[in-house]
């Protein structure tokens, strides 16, 4: 269970998150949608303690990560897997090395068990036989899949996806979405996906939250969001230039 209360964050006087509240039940996949530069990635970085809020609390299974020390924070982070926007694969390691990294560094599993786990994870994301490649030698879509395999290898209970499909063609985009759904069924993690892929994301998420002006202005099932009367949400999901949201 993740519970965010009154989360506020400013950068150089500009308010990015403004008393944001959000509650995510365990095992749910929640998509966060909203304008580019609207604070979605900032919200995600708060959830793993990479940013400290100006005010507010973030409870992860009852632990307020805004007030714990670095050791407490690392204990909470063990529960997380993160797929970063740019994949964030380690350049100096192969695909195999990247996926094996969390197990090698955080567990005492023997090398053979790690190898089996990594090969299975690569199989799951459709990258069998790619273990010896370096990140620089594979495509953007493959990098995203390696990042997904790395995020899931330690079987985290919470997985954060920061725009996992941005910049990918529709075929790869759908395959990544299918992978997220497939792995969610397999591992039953709580998922938070930041996405601009509308309407595709409605097939992946159990609930959708719209972030606007630093706060969640609507939170509901994909059906509720698609049938909404809220003019801001309506304009955003239809991509219309007419409406209360200022466009270029």
């Amino acid at each position: 269970m993740i519970e965010i209360k009154g989360l506020t964050k400013s950068f150089k006087g500009q308010v990015v998150l403004d008393r944001l509240d959000l509650k995510i039940a365990a095992g749910e996949v929640v998509a966060i949608i909203g304008k580019s530069g609207g604070g979605k990635s900032v919200l995600l970085k708060h959830l793993i303690g990479l940013l400290k809020p100006d005010a507010g609390t973030i409870l992860i299974n009852g632990v307020d990560i805004t007030s714990v020390d670095i050791h407490g924070l690392r204990n909470v982070r063990q529960k997380f897997g993160v797929v970063f926007q740019g994949s964030a694969l380690f350049d100096s390691l192969t695909v195999f090395g990247n996926v094996a990294f969390p197990l090698r560094e955080r567990t005492k599993l023997p090398a053979e068990a790690i190898r089996e786990n990594v090969l299975e994870a690569l199989e799951d994301v459709g990258l069998r036989g790619m273990g010896n490649k370096y990140p620089a030698e594979i495509s953007g879509g493959m990098k995203k899949r390696v990042a997904l395999a790395r995020a899931l290898i330690a079987e985290p209970s919470i997985v954060l996806f920061d725009e996992p499909t941005t910049g990918l063609d529709p075929l790869i985009l759908n395959s990544i979405h299918r992978l997220i759904t497939h792995t969610h069924r397999k591992y039953r993690f709580t998922g938070i996906i930041i996405s601009h892929e509308i309407p595709e994301i409605f097939d992946v998420a159990d609930r959708v939250a719209m972030l606007y002006n630093g706060a969640i202005i609507q939170y509901g099932t994909p059906e509720e969001i698609q049938k909404t009367d809220n003019p801001f949400v309506k304009q955003f999901i239809t991509g219309s230039s007419e409406g209360p949201i200022e466009t270029l």
């Binding site: 970085k45 793993i48 303690g49 990479l50 690392r74 204990n75 982070r77 063990q78 997380f80 993160v82 970063f84 926007q85 740019g86 964030a88 694969l89 380690f90 350049d91 990294f101 969390p102 560094e105 955080r106």
Partner: peptide, 18 residues
């Protein structure tokens, strides 16, 4: 620096590593 801007350092932190 490149590890910082490509979020590789954030990735290390998110894995509960120093």
């Amino acid at each position: 620096g490149i590890m910082r801007i490509s979020e590789q350092i954030d990735a290390l932190e998110s894995m509960a590593l120093n």
